[in-house]
Design a binder for these strands. Structure first.
Lengths: 342, 342
DNA sequence: CTGAAAGCGCTTACAG
DNA sequence: CTGAAAGCGCTTACAG
């Protein structure tokens, strides 16, 4: 720990000017303080010589800006097992770091002690809220949060607060998948989901999309809702009441099906077809490789961050809602229906 | 955006006391301001009624604390493909969030414009630096950085700065692996690494550990150094000059070998054995499942964070260096040597 | 073109 | 037991 950090005073002293001039030259935007070219140069040099960097907290206090963006998920424990979230983090980082902002990852404590920590105006200049839960939660948040926010992976719905919303087109994605399976002859489907998702808007859309896509074609389907898919899928598979096509609400859930099938000696895709949603690289590592609907996660995250930045800078929201088409990555876990399921 | 944020003044006014009293009651630690019980209660109540939360920047400026911890890796692009780093992030989060600190992920720009952003005393209360590069870099950083730091995944070496260092025992881990392979009859080994790792201390240890473990037993080995393993491993495999046992410096690199083998029709583990290092869940998703040395990543990260927190709080460093034993996860990618390699 | 001064919201010796 | 005041390092009207 060499010397005390340099302050604006040190620079002013060294350059023989007032601290106002220094401030103006180094960051000034307004037209309030005018400085001559030579003076400016002298100040620049002094700052450089002293290796001066302005105190972050002082600026923040004065300007009421934190240069920090919050990224909020429902859960952030065990991120390593949730590639979707890590991808979002990657995308947000990409967009936000070059602009000089930090990003802080937060847990969505909505069911807990309230939103206080997000609401604090001084902590974040803006918030990216991923996968908003209920209608009520959304409205509650918007009412309380003081800084700009954008909702990621949150579908648009009539009556929702006027916050920018970005979401992949879950219905279209599901339709793509069902179309694929239907052509392979599948008429019986199961959709595996978890109970905590019941009121989240994107998972709801996805589930409804599934029901519609199968229903419209005249197929049979059931919704299987687990409290903890990781530990319960195996037992469900073991009971043997699965249909010929099993779809996980996301790729992780579909992964549990694959693992269980392997343990139980159920052949995928010969006996049953399995598919998921998201299509990160995880789907390339399963055996068999997992067929999955793909959403453009990285793009969505980057866009969300860019929009948030614009809002922070005071621009009007460029878009209020954006829907991203999904594509289908056909891998190895889906095939023609086994005759036994017809 | 309802009303302006409440300040300490509002609370003082409502409670009919001075702001000094409020400050003391809400956060005061020293014995400087004494407050009566009833006054204290009145202040507490006022603060609660107003839903007061102190301004973060003002406190930070005054106390010269940021309540933020920096986590620095060599690269943070594409985190989703680097589970090791995500695990570290998970561990640091676990330890640091409950203590009221934020964590910010940073790119190690050591080869770039200097450490200025880390050096700024006001930005972080402490730094966790993962996988420090060269000896020189380490010393340079320590000289400049003003806040406490701990070095993660950095082995201890004579002459290194007196910063707490946590590292898995790479040599012991490698020995475990080679022992396993040796017993399976393997006498010829390749170690795949990347050139940017050449001066990082942990990768160096790991590589040396490999050389020693094989050398001591009298085996043959070669070091294969890629610029970009992701794109170059396949070609190397294609040339067919691989030995019977191929070890990646980490699990990702070993994963490339597995993928390449699959494409080239090389049977693992019948024709060659493949192994890696780290042993995250990734190793359970490859086919065949990847044998790997395991390091207790989460524990190490949690410990690093706890030590850093202690340093920040002004305690003396509880340990200066800690070495964590590795274990071996034998999965499916290693087997008896193919006679052709004898 | 330039500087003196107020103030962002807090904490902490200091004086009563 | 309590409060007035200084000051953390900045920025920005305001006056010259």
């Amino acid at each position: 720990m060499p010397d005390a950090p340099k302050t604006i005073k040190d620079v002013a002293a060294k350059a023989g000017v007032s601290i106002a001039a220094v401030s103006k030259v180094l960051h000034g935007s307004g037209t309030t303080v005018r400085v001559g070219t030579q003076t400016a140069e002298r100040i620049q040099k002094a700052a450089k010589d002293l290796n001066y960097r302005p105190n972050r907290h002082a600026r923040s206090l004065r300007l009421n800006r934190s240069y920090t963006v919050g990224l909020i998920f429902h859960g952030i424990d065990n991120l390593s097992k949730q590639l979707f979230k890590v991808h979002v983090l990657d995308g947000v980082h990409d967009a936000v770091i070059p602009a000089g902002y930090d990003v802080i990852l937060l847990h969505d404590l909505s069911r807990g002690p309230g939103y206080s920590q997000f609401v604090d105006g001084d902590r974040f200049d803006g918030l990216i809220w991923a996968r908003l839960s209920s209608f009520e939660q959304f409205s509650g948040i918007v009412q309380q949060v003081k800084s700009p926010m954008v909702a990621l992976s949150t579908p648009s719905r009539p009556g929702l607060p006027l916050v920018p919303k970005l979401c992949c087109n879950n219905r279209q994605g599901m339709d793509l998948l069902i179309d694929h399976l239907w052509k392979l002859g599948h008429r019986q489907y199961a959709y595996l989901t978890e109970s905590y998702l019941a009121e989240m808007m994107e998972p709801m859309d996805r589930e409804e999309g599934f029901c519609e896509a199968v229903g419209r074609r005249g197929g049979d389907f059931e919704i299987v809702r687990f409290n903890d898919a990781a530990s319960e899928v195996y037992r469900w598979m073991e009971q043997g009441r699965y249909p010929g096509a099993v779809i996980g609400w996301n790729e992780d859930t579909a992964g549990y099906v694959l693992e269980s099938a392997l343990k139980l000696g159920i052949q995928v895709p010969n006996e049953i077809s399995v598919a998921g949603f998201d299509s990160t690289w995880y789907c390339d590592t399963t055996s068999p490789r997992l067929t999955s609907v793909r959403q453009p996660i990285l793009q969505m995250a980057t866009d969300a961050a860019a929009i948030l930045l614009a809002l922070i800078e005071g621009e009007a929201a460029p878009v209020l809602e954006r829907s991203y088409p999904c594509t289908l990555d056909c891998r190895e876990s889906t095939a023609e229906v086994n005759p036994r399921f017809i």
